[in-house]
Design a protein around this nucleic acid. Structure first.
Lengths: 341, 341
DNA sequence: ATAGTTTTGATAGACGCCTATCAGGAATTG
DNA sequence: CAATTCCTGATAGGCGTCTATCAAAACTAT
C-alpha cells in the first residue's frame, strides 16, 4: 500500500531510474522497445507520479493575468474580488495572478491591452468583446504560446483554448421558460432590456429568450429591446418610460446589469407585484429585490467558480496536462427567494 | 518576486531556520518574544509555507471512508461513482478513499458499520440516518479522533464536524415557491410523495414545502403525504391511486427518489401535461422526463460537489487546517428544460 | 560564580521527482 | 573491424519543508 515511486518502476522494468525518467518526460531518445517496457511497468504497478514532488522539483511558477472591465458593475466587481482572493490563496501553490482593468467595451483599447501583455505571462483570462480586432489580439497571444481563456463572454471564432462561462443562449431560454410558466395563461407584453447589443453574451441571451418565447408562449408579446449600456440610471429611465407606455406590461427580462434601475422604476410605479421580473447575476441589490419580491427569479453565473475554473484550465494548459471537462462546466444557476445561498 | 522561503524568514528575523520551524510547527518551547519576532518577519515578508514541499516532507497519507446506502437508487449510485472517481484521482495527492455500502435505512446496521470502522481511517463521510443509535456511533468515531462528515442527510445533534449537503428545508420551500408560481391562480390539489418519513432530509423538505404552501398559496390544497420507501414501483402504485382519487390534482411534489414511478403513472393516466410535477435529483430518468415535459422542475444537489467538498473538509480536519466555509456550501440547483448541464 | 535548565543554532537526512553530466555498453556505419 | 553514433546506467545536487540530534548559548536558581 505504500507509494509507488519512480524507483519501483525502474526495478520492475529492469531499467534505471534515469531511463524511466527519460520516458516520462520525453527528455532524450529512448528505443521504442525500452519505452514500452517502461510503460508496461507503469501500468502494472499503476504508477502515478507524485504531483507534489514533481512541481516542487520543477520549481515552475505560473504567471497568469486576468483582464476585466473597469467600472462599477456589481458582478464585475465581484469577479475582480474573486480573482484577488484566488490570487492570494494560490501563492502557496506557486501561482501568481495579476489583475488588469480596462475598457472592455472598446475593442481597440482591449486589443491594445492584450497586445501589450508581454511574454511575462503563461496564460491570460479575459472578459472579451467579440470583435475582429480583439479576436486577432487573442490569436496573437495564442501564437506566442500564451494560453488564453475567455471569461463570462466568449469569442468563439478565436483560438482561445477554453471558455469559462455559462451558455448564454441557454440562459436566455431558461429565463423565457420561467417567464412563460410564471405568467401562465395571462396575456400581455414582455419587455426586454439589454446592456449592449454588441456584447456577445447579451446577444445570445436575447436570442435564446426570444426563441423560446415565440415558440412556446406565442400569446405573449415581446417589446423591442431597449439598450441600457449596463448603467442603472439609464436602465431606470428607459424602464420608467416603458412602464408608462405599456399599461399591459406583465413581464420584464433584464439581460444585462443595472438591475437596480428596474427595481426603482417598478417601485416608483407601484407595479412590482404585477410584473414578473427576471434579472441576471446575484448581487446585493438583486438579492434584496428578490427577497422583497420585486425580482421573481435571478439567473446567475457563479463568479467564484468561473475564476477558479479559469485558473485550473490555465494551469492545465500551461503544463499541457489534460483537464476533466465535466468539472469545468459552469452551470446556469436559478435563484428564487428560497434557495439563495 | 522569487519565493519567500523559511530561510528568508530566519534571515529577516535574525534567527535560525530551526527556530522559525519551531514556531511554525509548535515543535518545542520558544520564548514569546522570539516567537513574536518570527511572526513579525512572517508578516513582513508575507511568507506562506509551500504546501507542496510541506506535504512532500511530511509524507502524510490520508485514509478516508465513505459509507453510502446500498441499493439501486440512481442518485446514490451516482454518488458512489463520484466517490470512486475521486478516489482514483486523489491517489496522486496521497489520499486513499474506501467505499462501503450498507443498509443506511436500518439504524442498527449503520451504527454497527460505523462502530466497526476501526482506527485505520482519518475521516469518515456517511449518508446518515438521524437516529440515536447512529448519533452515538458518530460521536464514538469523533471521540476516537476520526473526523466525521455527514453527507446528503445530516445528524445535527451529533458531533460530526461538518455536513456536506443541501439545506433540505430550503429545498422544500423552493419546490413550493415554484409550484405555487407555476400553478398561478389555478385551484386544485397538490400531492406530496416522500420516501420515508424517518429520513431527515425528506422530513425537512416536506416541512419547508408545506410551510410555504400554507403561507403563500393558501388556495391550493395539500393532500396527505404518501410514503414510497424510495421504490419506484411503489411510487407508481400510490401515484396511480392518487390520480384516480383526485381528478382535480394539479401538482405533485416528489420529495424522495423513484421519480420514474410518477412519470409512468402520469403517462398512463395521460395527465402529464395538466399536472405540474416537481422532482428531486437529476438522473437519466428525471432528465428525460424533464425534457419531455412530464417533469416541470428538478431540484438537484450535485453529487460531485458534495463528494469533493466532503473530501476537502476531511482533509482540512485531518490536518487541522482552516477551511473556506463559503467554498463548502452546497447549493440547491434548479433545473428546467433549458439549463440542463 | 557554579551548576542546572531552558532556548537557540547548525546541520544532516528524508520526501519523490527533475535536471544534468559522464562513462560504459549497444547498435550502426563505412 | 574500427570508428561513430546512439542508448542506457549511475550518480550528484536541488526544490522547500519536516524531523531529529547535538552542541552552543542564554538564562535561572542556588
Amino acid at each position: 500500500m505504500a507509494r509507488v515511486t519512480i524507483e519501483d518502476v525502474a526495478l520492475e522494468a529492469g531499467l534505471s531510474v534515469a531511463t524511466v525518467d527519460r520516458v516520462l518526460n520525453g527528455r532524450a531518445a529512448v528505443r521504442p522497445q525500452t519505452a514500452s517496457r517502461v510503460e508496461k511497468a507503469i501500468r502494472h504497478l499503476n504508477y502515478q507520479p507524485d504531483r507534489l514532488a514533481a512541481r516542487l522539483a520543477k520549481g515552475k511558477e505560473y504567471r497568469f493575468c486576468f483582464v476585466l472591465p473597469e467600472g462599477n458593475n456589481s458582478f464585475m466587481i465581484e469577479l475582480g474580488e474573486e480573482v484577488r482572493a484566488n490570487a492570494s490563496r494560490m501563492v502557496s501553490e506557486r501561482v501568481h495572478i495579476d489583475l488588469r482593468l480596462t475598457d472592455v467595451f472598446d475593442a481597440a483599447t482591449l486589443a491594445t491591452t492584450l497586445d501589450g501583455i508581454g511574454d511575462i505571462y503563461d496564460g491570460v483570462a479575459v472578459v472579451a468583446l467579440d470583435h475582429p480586432r480583439v479576436r486577432e489580439a487573442i490569436n496573437g497571444l495564442v501564437e506566442r504560446g500564451v494560453a488564453v481563456v475567455t471569461l463570462v463572454s466568449d469569442v468563439p471564432s478565436s483560438k482561445r483554448s477554453h471558455y469559462a462561462g455559462i451558455d448564454n443562449s441557454s440562459a436566455g431560454r431558461t429565463a423565457a421558460t420561467l417567464m412563460g410558466r410564471y405568467l401562465g395563461n395571462k396575456n400581455g407584453k414582455v419587455g426586454l432590456i439589454a446592456g449592449s447589443l454588441s456584447l456577445r453574451d447579451h446577444i445570445e441571451r436575447r436570442f435564446g429568450f426570444e426563441q423560446v418565447m415565440l415558440h412556446e408562449f406565442p400569446h405573449l408579446t415581446i417589446l423591442p429591446v431597449l439598450e441600457s449600456r449596463d448603467d442603472w440610471q439609464r436602465v431606470e429611465k428607459v424602464t420608467t418610460q416603458m412602464l408608462a407606455e405599456h399599461p399591459d406590461l406583465i413581464g420584464i427580462y433584464n439581460v444585462g446589469a443595472g438591475a437596480r434601475g428596474i427595481v426603482t422604476a417598478l417601485e416608483n410605479a407601484g407595479r412590482q407585484k404585477q410584473i414578473t421580473y427576471i434579472a441576471h447575476e446575484l448581487t446585493d441589490h438583486t438579492r434584496r429585490a428578490l427577497v422583497d419580491g420585486t425580482i421573481d427569479v435571478i439567473i446567475n453565473q457563479n463568479a467564484g467558480h468561473e475564476v477558479r475554473s479559469a485558473v485550473r484550465v490555465l494551469m492545465a494548459k500551461a503544463d499541457k496536462s489534460p483537464l476533466i471537462e465535466a468539472m469545468e462546466h459552469i452551470r446556469i444557476d436559478i435563484f428564487v427567494r428560497d434557495n439563495l445561498p
